[in-house]
């Protein structure tokens, strides 16, 4: 028997790791990886809640599908923005990119 606390702990660790990566990594692509980790943790929570508390309804599945859709769009646009930053500034170091101007 695997209690839900174990799954919540795993997704909590994933979320915290993603948040720490988003805040502390200097490379913009690595910061985006942190966002992906956080979204995965949220999805795991949705599925755990569905499995343990409401297995007859599939609303959590819809939520996970929508989150994955948003994650795909976010990754595409975010990485395109990062490529643009790299062309403009020659670096993707978030400490050096300070000019808020095209």
């Amino acid at each position: 028997m695997f209690s839900i606390t174990g799954l919540l702990t795993i997704s909590g660790i994933l979320f915290v790791a993603g948040a720490a990566a988003l805040i502390t990594r200097r490379n913009a692509v690595a910061a985006l990886m942190g966002v992906e980790l956080m979204l995965n943790a949220a999805n795991l929570n949705f599925v755990a809640g569905w499995r343990y508390f409401w297995p007859e309804r599939l609303d959590a599945h819809v939520a996970v599908l929508l989150v994955i859709t948003v994650a795909a769009a976010e990754a595409a646009v975010g990485l395109a923005i990062i490529l643009n930053l790299y062309r403009k500034f020659g670096t993707v170091d978030l400490e050096q990119i300070r000019l808020m101007r095209g």
Partner: peptide
């Protein structure tokens, strides 16, 4: 899709940061 996209982005912005730079900021 997403992992391949991320790897492409990393390779396209390669050598952008020196490898001996600290990976984390001051926080």
């Amino acid at each position: 899709a997403i992992l391949v996209l991320i790897i492409f982005a990393v390779t396209l912005t390669r050598n952008a940061m020196d490898s001996d730079d600290a990976p984390a900021n001051r926080f």
